[in-house]
Write a protein that binds this DNA or RNA. Structure first.
Length: 214
DNA sequence: AACAGTCCCAACCGCGAATGA
DNA sequence: CTCATTCGCGGTTGGGACTGT
């Protein structure tokens, strides 16, 4: 008899079944795991749910400034190698980083009317956005961060601080201090980037345009 | 309050790589 | 070696949440 495979959002009951099964038997062999756990889901679906949502070491909340820097840095080296980038951001999933890139970074490329893969945009990230991020990180309290020397081989330096609550307080102080300073970007008087996002308040529209026209 | 437009993220899909029979 | 199955990655999308009018 064919059992209908479930799709779409996971229920609390399904989550509990998956978590309790994995806690007893461990991960892997996802297709058989799905059957054994009594889930009418594909192995793929179970794997994705566990890795992106149910894993106990998942880190939630805003992407910190350090994490933003690391994403930009590693993406400039490796491109869309999301899982590889995620390995250097403990608790963050490849899916989350990918979503972050698409929703935030690509949006900026679109606003500036340039291709996200263009040299122009990459240079903007490298020579304007990243230095500005470094400034912001350095200016916030008690943050040990050595972005100039960040490398995947030495990622513990950066990730050690990003995994503490200091990054959250840093982000909140950032919102508070700089919303106005960097928020008045719209030539028409409004807020160009709608405000609200730390990444988006790092530079002005004029500043970016000036850079792009160089 | 109601509606429309936009944003964001969880989940799906397709494909290539890895593994095993 | 070949074929089938499983795994993991990157791209895409549906729909709920949010925002503006």
């Amino acid at each position: 008899m064919e059992i209908e495979i479930r799709r779409g959002p996971w229920t609390v009951d399904e989550d509990m079944k998956l978590v309790s099964y994995i806690s007893l038997h461990g991960e892997g062999r996802w297709n058989s795991l799905s059957r054994s756990a009594g889930l009418n889901r594909t192995g793929k679906s179970c794997r994705l749910r566990w890795l992106n949502y149910l894993r106990p070491d998942i880190r939630r909340g805003d992407i910190s400034l350090q994490e933003q820097f690391i994403i930009l840095e590693l993406h400039s080296r490796w491109g869309n190698r999301w899982s590889k980038i995620a390995q250097h951001l403990p608790g963050r999933t490849d899916n989350e980083i990918k979503n972050y890139w698409r929703t935030r970074v690509q949006k900026h490329a679109k606003l500036l009317k340039c291709d996200v893969n263009s040299k122009q945009f990459k240079d903007t990230i490298k020579h304007l956005w990243m230095p500005r991020l470094v400034e912001r990180i350095a200016s916030t309290q008690n943050v040990e961060f050595t972005p100039n020397h960040y490398s995947p081989e030495n990622s513990s330096v950066a990730t050690a601080t990003s995994s503490t609550s200091s990054s959250e307080s840093m982000a909140s102080s950032f919102y508070g201090d700089d919303q106005v300073e960097y928020g008045t970007l719209d030539p028409n008087g409004g807020n160009w980037f709608n405000g609200g996002d730390a990444f988006e308040t790092l530079w002005s529209f004029d500043e970016l345009n000036k850079w792009l026209l160089q």
